[in-house]
Nucleic acid binder design. Structure first.
Length: 829
RNA sequence: GCGGGAAUGCCGGAGCGGUCAAACGGGCAUGACUCAAGAUCAUGUGGCUUAGUGCCUACGGAGGUUCGAAUCCUCUUUCCCGCACCA
C-alpha cells in the first residue's frame, strides 16, 4: 500500500502557493543566491524526463540554499518564440500564439506538480510584448553602438526552416533542426551582430569560469583564436590589379609559396578568372555545387586554374592563382598562400595538379627525408633553406624575422583571426521579435524610435510562401521617422537566441514597465550563482549570453563581466533500452505519468539517486519502485514514531551524517547524499528511539529531495509554518564520536564470525546451536558485554561473554586461547 | 584528423594511494511469515579452503612509480561526446 502521496502533494503545493512561500524580495539581510535552469521552449508535448531531471537538480539546490539562510532567487520562464509553434500553426491552420499559450499553461501545471519552488510571481515568456520590447530596445542600443549592421554576405540557408541560420546553427553542413537538410549557401543581405568585437574577451575570460572543462574547451575551440600575419599579394585580375590580404600563421614559409588558392565559393572568384579559363572554371563550380556537403569532407582536394597570377611579395615571382574546394570563403580573405612543402593540404593539391614544391625548412630530425618519397608535407619546425638571408636560421626564429621584414616593408601586418563569426540574427519567419528597423527610399535604413517600442508582432498574417509579416500592410507600411514619408518596416524577426541571451537579467525585475530592469535589483541578484542545463548550448546560448553581458556592461547597465558563475550540465535521461526517448521508438516515459503513479517526491528522489547528476542514465522502472518503497517506509516510520530521547550513538551518527550530507549536497553529489540518508534512516528506524530535535533534523535533511513528505512530517511533529523555510541543520562536531563507529565495527565482526561458523558447521555436520560463548581479552570485555543484546538478536543465540583470563569460565574446547585483540575466541553449543 | 570524457561484480553505480572482494541500490538464492502468491523481514551473492582462518584471482589490456595502486605515470584497446580541410 502506498501512502497517500496525491493528497499530501496537492495539499502542500496549494499551501506553498497560497502563502507565497517562495516569493523573494531584494530587501533582505540574507546573502543572495541565484539558482537558474535554462528556460525551456514550451513544447506542445509538455515536459519530458530531461526537464524533470533538470528541474529536480535545480530545485534541490534552491531549497538547500534557502534553508542554509540564503535569499534565493529561483525563477522560471519560457523561451516561447520559435519555429515549432509556427510550423504547428501552419499545419493545423491555427495561430502560433494559441499553441504557445496552451503549451505554457500545460508546462506550468506540470512543473507545479513536481513541487518546484519557483518564485512564480516573476514568470516571463519571450513572446510577451512586455518582454520582447526590451529585445528591440537592446537591438537599438546595439545599433547605436555600431554593434548591429546589415550586409550582404554568404549565409546559411535552410530550405525546411525557410530562413537563414546563424553559423552556430549549422552542424556538419546541416540545419541544427533538420538533420536531413543540407544547408545552402546564399549571398544575401542580412542583419548581423558584431560578436567578434568581444571575441578576445569572451575567450580570455573562459578560464575564469567555474564551468565543466569540456564546455570551456568547446567555447575556446569555437572562438578559435589564431595569431598570424596578413600579407598583401598583388593579383592581376580581369578587372585590373588588386591587392589580396592573405592570412597565414606560417610566414616562415613565405619563400615556399608556389601558388595561391582562392575559395571556390568566394563571391569575387569570377573576377579572377580569365576569359580563357572561364569554361573550365564554370564546369568546376558546377561540379562542386552538385556534391553534397557530407561528401565534400571526404572528397579530394580539387581545383581549377583561374588564369591569373599573383606576385610574390618578396621575390616578385609570378604565382598562379587557383580556385579550390578546400579553402573557406569566409575565413581570412578567402584566399590562401599555398606552401606545398610544409602544409599537407597544399601538398596534396600540388601533387594532384603538378604544381611546384619548394622546401624551405629542413627538419631537425635528420632521418626525415627532405621531401622526395616522403609523401607528405613537413609541418614541424626546422632549419631554413631556399630563403635567402634567412637560410640557416631556426624556423621559429625566422617566423619572427620574416614577419618583421614584411612589416617594415609595409606589405604585411600582424593580426589575429577568429573562427567565431559575427552573429547573423535576422530570420525570415513570423514567430519572433520584429526587428525594429525601417526602410525609407529617401532616408535609407533607420531605427524605429525608442518611444514607439514595442514594435508589436501583428496577429493577423497569412502563412504561406515567404515571410508572413509582409502580408500585413498595417504592420508593413509606416511613416519614415525622419522625413515622415512612406516607408516600410523590416519584416525579418530576430533569432530566438536573442531572447535567451538576457532573460536571466529580466528575472531580477520581470514586471518593470519603465525600463529593461532596475539596475539596483540586477546588481543585487546577478550573477547567477548556479546555472543548470544541458550541454547542447555550449556554443550557442552560452556564448551569446556572455556576449550580451559584456555589451550591457560596456553600456553601463551592468557592473559585472560574466553572467553565470557556475555552470552545471546534467546528464541525459535515456529510455530503459539505452536509446534516447522518442515517440518513434515508443520508449518515452512521461514524467507526469510517473507523478500520477508514484508521486513527485518519488520521481524527484529517483532521478537524482541513480548516479552522479552530470552523468547519463537509463530509465529503470524497477528502480523507481525501489525508491517508492523507501518513501513508504519512511512515511510509515515517521507516522508512528513518538519522539523521546536520543542515545549518544544516535547523536553521533546523526551529526556525522549531517556533516557529510551537507557537503555532498553542496557539491551536487546528490546520489551520495541519498545513500547516506538511507543508511541514516535504516539506523534510526531500527534504533526506534530518537529525540524530537534529532528527528526534526532528519526530516530537514530529506526535505530538499522530497519536499511534500517533509512538510507533512514537519506538521505531524507539531510544527507550525513550513519546513521549506526552516534552518538547515548544522552538524555538531563535538557529538561525533568515532569510537562508537569502531565499537560498532567490532561487534559487526563478532556477529559475522559467529554466523559464519554456524553456517559452516551446519553445512558440514548438520549441527544446530543455541548458545555462544565469547572469550575476549580482558580490556575488551566491557565493550562486548555491553552489546550482548544486539549480538543475541543478530545471531539468534544465547550469548555469554568471558574474559580470556577468567578462571571460572565455561570453555570445554579451550577456545579462549584464540582470543586476540579485536578477535575474541568463540565456542558454540 | 584534433579536442574532451569514460571503461569497476550478474546489472546500475560509489571509491580516486593503505582500513577494498569493493558503499548503496537492483537482480538472484536461501530462510521466516502465508493455504499460496505478492508484500515484508533476515541472511547470502569472485574462487578455493577453514569452527570464525588462510590463500588465490579481480577494478578494459600491457608496462612503470611506490613498502603498498581500482586509485599516480606511460603506452594501448574499446566506447561516448564535441569540432571538423580555420591556412
Amino acid at each position: 500500500m502506498s501512502y497517500d502521496f496525491k493528497k499530501i502533494e496537492a495539499k502542500w503545493q496549494k499551501k506553498w502557493e497560497e502563502k507565497k512561500v517562495f516569493q523573494v524580495k531584494e530587501n533582505s539581510k540574507k546573502k543572495k543566491y541565484y539558482v537558474l535552469e535554462m528556460y525551456p521552449y514550451p513544447s506542445g508535448y509538455g515536459i519530458h524526463m530531461g526537464h524533470a531531471f533538470n528541474y529536480s537538480i535545480g530545485d534541490i539546490r534552491a531549497r538547500f540554499k534557502r534553508m542554509q539562510g540564503f535569499n534565493v532567487l529561483y525563477p522560471m520562464g519560457y523561451d516561447s518564440f520559435g519555429l515549432p509553434a509556427e510550423n504547428a500553426a501552419i499545419k493545423f491552420k491555427s495561430h502560433p500564439k494559441i499553441f504557445t499559450d496552451e503549451a505554457i499553461k500545460n508546462f506550468v501545471k506540470q512543473q507545479k506538480a513536481l513541487g518546484l519552488s519557483y518564485d512564480w510571481s516573476r514568470v516571463l515568456w519571450s513572446h510577451d510584448s512586455e518582454y520582447y520590447k526590451w529585445n528591440q530596445w537592446i537591438f537599438l542600443k546595439m545599433f547605436e553602438k555600431g554593434l548591429v549592421y546589415r550586409k550582404k554576405a554568404l549565409v546559411n540557408w535552410c530550405q525546411k526552416c525557410d530562413t537563414v541560420l546563424a553559423n552556430e546553427q549549422v552542424h556538419n553542413g546541416k540545419c541544427w533542426r533538420h538533420e536531413d537538410t543540407e544547408v545552402q549557401i546564399k549571398n544575401l543581405e542580412q542583419w548581423f551582430i558584431k560578436t567578434t568585437e568581444y571575441a578576445d574577451e569572451i575567450l580570455k575570460m573562459v578560464d575564469k569560469l567555474e564551468w565543466p572543462e569540456r564546455i570551456k574547451t568547446m567555447q575556446k575551440n569555437w572562438i578559435g583564436r589564431s595569431e598570424g600575419v596578413e600579407i598583401d599579394f598583388e593579383v592581376s585580375s580581369s578587372a585590373g590589379g588588386t591587392k589580396w590580404k592573405v592570412f597565414t600563421t606560417r610566414p616562415d614559409t613565405i619563400y615556399g609559396v608556389t601558388f595561391m588558392v582562392v575559395s571556390a565559393q568566394h563571391p569575387k572568384l569570377m573576377e579572377l578568372v580569365t576569359e580563357r579559363e572561364k569554361r573550365k572554371a564554370e564546369d568546376f563550380l558546377k561540379k562542386i555545387k552538385s556534391v553534397k556537403q557530407e561528401d565534400i569532407d571526404k572528397l579530394d582536394k580539387e581545383g581549377v586554374f583561374t588564369g591569373t597570377y599573383a606576385r610574390h611579395p618578396i621575390t616578385g615571382e609570378k604565382i598562379p592563382v587557383w580556385a579550390g574546394n578546400f579553402v573557406l570563403a569566409d575565413y581570412g580573405s578567402g584566399m590562401v598562400m599555398a606552401v606545398p612543402a610544409h602544409d599537407q593540404r597544399d601538398f596534396e593539391f600540388a601533387e594532384k595538379y603538378g604544381l611546384g614544391i619548394i622546401p624551405v625548412i629542413k627538419p631537425l630530425d635528420v632521418r626525415t627525408p627532405l621531401l622526395k618519397g616522403h609523401g607528405k608535407a613537413i609541418t614541424e619546425p626546422g632549419i631554413m633553406l631556399n630563403s635567402r638571408q634567412f637560410d640557416g636560421m631556426n624556423s621559429e626564429v625566422a617566423k619572427e624575422k620574416i614577419t618583421d621584414f614584411l612589416v617594415n616593408k609595409r606589405i604585411a601586418k600582424r593580426t589575429v583571426q577568429f573562427k567565431l563569426k559575427d552573429w547573423l540574427v535576422s530570420r525570415q519567419r513570423y514567430w519572433g521579435t520584429p526587428i525594429p528597423m525601417i526602410y525609407c527610399d529617401k532616408c535609407g535604413i533607420l531605427p524605429a524610435s525608442e518611444k514607439d517600442l514595442p514594435v508589436k508582432l501583428p496577429e493577423k498574417v497569412v502563412f504561406g510562401k515567404g515571410n508572413p509579416l509582409e502580408t500585413n500592410k498595417e504592420f508593413l507600411n509606416v511613416k519614415c521617422p525622419d522625413c515622415k514619408g512612406k516607408a516600410k518596416r523590416e519584416t525579418d524577426t530576430m533569432d530566438t537566441f536573442f531572447d535567451s541571451s538576457w532573460y536571466y537579467l529580466r528575472f531580477c525585475d520581470s514586471k518593470n514597465k519603465k525600463e529593461i530592469f532596475d539596475r539596483k535589483k540586477v546588481k543585487y541578484w546577478m550573477p547567477v550563482d548556479s546555472y543548470i542545463g544541458g550541454a547542447e548550448h555550449a556554443t550557442m546560448h552560452l556564448i551569446y549570453a556572455r556576449f550580451f553581458t559584456k555589451v550591457l556592461r560596456d553600456m553601463k547597465f551592468l557592473d559585472f563581466d560574466e553572467p553565470f558563475k557556475k555552470l552545471f550540465n546534467q546528464g541525459m535521461v535515456h529510455a530503459s533500452d539505452g536509446f534516447v526517448m522518442s515517440k518513434s521508438r515508443g520508449n518515452v516515459v512521461d514524467p507526469s505519468e510517473i507523478v500520477k503513479q508514484f508521486g513527485a517526491d518519488t520521481l524527484r528522489l529517483f532521478l537524482v539517486s541513480n548516479g552522479s547528476p552530470d552523468k547519463d542514465f537509463n530509465w529503470d522502472s524497477r528502480g523507481i519502485e525501489g525508491i517508492h518503497k523507501f518513501l513508504n517506509k519512511a512515511h510509515d516510520f515517521l507516522q508512528k514514531t513518538k519522539p523521546s530521547s536520543s542515545s549518544k550513538k544516535t547523536e553521533s551518527k546523526l551529526n556525522k551524517s549531517t556533516k557529510e550530507i551537507t557537503e555532498d549536497i553542496e557539491n551536487l553529489r546528490y546520489n551520495i547524499a541519498i545513500i547516506k540518508i538511507r543508511q541514516l534512516f535504516d539506523y534510526i528506524s531500527e534504533e526506534g528511539r530518537i529525540s524530537k530535535k534529532d528527528v526534526q533534523s532528519f526530516v530537514k535533511l530529506i526535505s530538499p529531495f522530497m519536499p511534500h513528505l517533509a512538510e507533512e512530517f514537519w506538521e505531524k511533529l507539531g510544527n507550525k509554518g513550513f519546513i521549506s523555510l526552516e534552518k538547515w541543520p548544522e552538524a555538531d562536531e563535538k557529538k561525533i564520536d568515532e569510537s562508537i563507529e569502531k565499537e560498532e565495527q567490532a561487534i559487526d565482526k563478532i556477529v559475522n564470525d559467529i554466523n559464519n561458523v554456524v553456517r559452516i558447521i551446519k553445512e558440514k555436520q548438520d549441527k544446530e546451536f543455541t548458545k555462544a560463548f565469547i572469550y575476549v581479552i580482558p580490556k575488551e570485555k566491557n565493550l562486548v558485554s555491553k552489546n550482548i543484546n544486539s549480538i543475541e538478536k543478530r545471531t539468534g543465540l544465547k550469548v555469554q561473554v568471558f574474559a580470556s583470563n577468567d578462571s571460572k569460565k565455561y570453555d570445554p574446547e579451550e577456545k579462549s586461547k584464540n582470543a586476540k585483540p579485536g578477535k575474541p575466541g568463540i565456542y558454540l553449543e
